[in-house]
Design a binder for these strands. Structure first.
Length: 389
DNA sequence: AACGTCACGGTTGAA
DNA sequence: CCTTCAACCGTGACG
């Protein structure tokens, strides 16, 4: 059905970015926010969402934070049952704009998950690129940045999607390579026997643009404590901003490949789990909780709706309390997140703000909906998350 | 009345 | 450790 697009599309991103960039004087009143009149308890910024805030519909939300997955899932589920978005909005007490956004994203990407919050864009000036630039500069000290750029493209070091800008190259030349022309080339030669210690976390491993490097299936090291991800899994770590058709199709071609290993995780939409936050490979000791990125868990745990509809911190899960990594034979590292929702929807007596609009029985998300055409994704219950909720 | 869009103030995490 | 930046969030208002 809609499984042809497994990566997040540009649609939700580009307009947002544009709207941020262009400060349209469209209105002077839209800034009215609930927080202006309903400052949450606590007032100051803390780690705790306190009581969150209450929107016009009486729903509780935490400004700046995504809705709980249960609600997101419920939105999609109700929509699939034919309930109108406006009714969903009222029933779940979520603004219709939010419902619209979540449904639009779901229709577009097949994922209910929020986007990647925080972090920075992946660098295009990877060590490999820098190395090539260095080489070019060594061979031709008078080379211009734009020439280097062209050569990076021509040599297949980069493609048009991760090609550094001329200014970036200039900066590299200035900062990282510096007065290379004065440098003793012995240094670079001397390092040859020790193959340039490939970065521990090569860029293409984390944000695998479809460069020849990535496409060639080059072996990439894995960080200590992390499992060696199969190539198709690593490839799912697509930078959310990589919206090009090439990227999408490139990833798609991979996601459509049959999964040959024993892992039963769904091939599609994995990126959703892994790229939710811009966390690169987290330190093996902390950020992964049975494969669930810590921030994700936190988002789930910290802002979980309690029976009275208010977020709570009582279920906060601290990473150190959880084993950093479980072998993928138990649960795919990328399935943990998906596994959480049923746990706290059905196992936990979550209710909407009123506790009435959605009775627990109406919340049984037995039907795996998270991903279109990927049945069974939600079945696996993550014990830690479940117990934490 | 319903809904798509977007400014706003907020959070987040990498650099 | 702190700041900056750029991504994301949901709300609320507009059209």
């Amino acid at each position: 059905m809609r499984d042809q697009i497994a990566v997040r599309s540009a649609a939700p991103v580009a307009p947002a970015a544009a709207s941020r960039a262009t400060f349209s004087p469209r209105l002077s009143s839209s800034g009215t926010r609930s927080s202006d009149t309903f400052t949450g308890a606590g007032g100051t910024k803390t780690m705790e969402p306190a009581f969150g805030e209450v929107n016009q519909l009486g729903g509780v939300f935490v400004n700046g934070r995504p809705l709980p997955n249960a609600i997101r899932l419920r939105i999609v589920e109700l929509a699939q049952l034919g309930i109108r978005p406006c009714d969903i909005s009222r029933q779940l007490r979520v603004s219709h704009g939010c419902v619209s956004k979540i449904l639009a994203r779901y229709n577009e990407t097949g994922s209910i998950l929020p986007g990647a919050i925080g972090g920075s864009k992946p660098r295009v000036t990877t060590p490999t690129v820098v190395k090539h630039i260095r080489t070019y500069k060594q061979r031709d000290p008078g080379i211009f940045a734009w020439e280097i750029r062209d050569r990076l493209l021509a040599d297949g070091v980069c493609d048009k999607f991760n090609l550094p800008s001329v200014s970036s190259i200039s900066r590299i030349l200035r900062n990282k390579i510096g007065n290379l022309s004065h440098q003793n080339q012995y240094e670079s030669i001397k390092q040859a026997p020790h193959p340039q210690p490939q970065p521990t976390l090569p860029y293409n491993h984390i944000y695998p643009y479809p460069t020849p490097i990535a496409a060639s299936g080059a072996k990439v090291p894995t960080p200590p404590g992390m499992p060696a991800l199969p190539g198709h899994m690593a490839m799912h770590r697509i930078w959310p901003s990589s919206h090009s058709v090439t990227d999408i199709l490139g990833i798609r071609s991979i996601t459509e490949q049959p999964i040959s290993d024993s892992l039963s995780f769904p091939s599609a939409k994995l990126e959703e789990w892994s790229a939710i936050n811009r966390t690169n490979f987290p330190p093996a000791s902390s950020a992964l909780v049975n494969g669930v990125e810590k921030a994700h868990l936190e988002a789930e745990a910290k802002y979980t709706q309690t029976p009275n509809g208010l977020p709570t911190v009582s279920s906060y899960v601290t990473a150190p309390s959880i084993p950093p990594y479980h072998p993928p034979t138990q649960v795919s590292p990328y399935m943990g997140y998906s596994a959480t929702t049923p746990a706290y929807v059905t196992g936990h007596t979550w209710q909407p703000a009123s506790g009435s609009a959605l009775s627990p029985h109406s919340c049984d998300f037995a039907t795996p909906l998270a991903f279109k055409g990927v049945p069974g994704t939600w079945e696996t219950v993550h014990p830690v998350t479940a117990s934490a909720l």
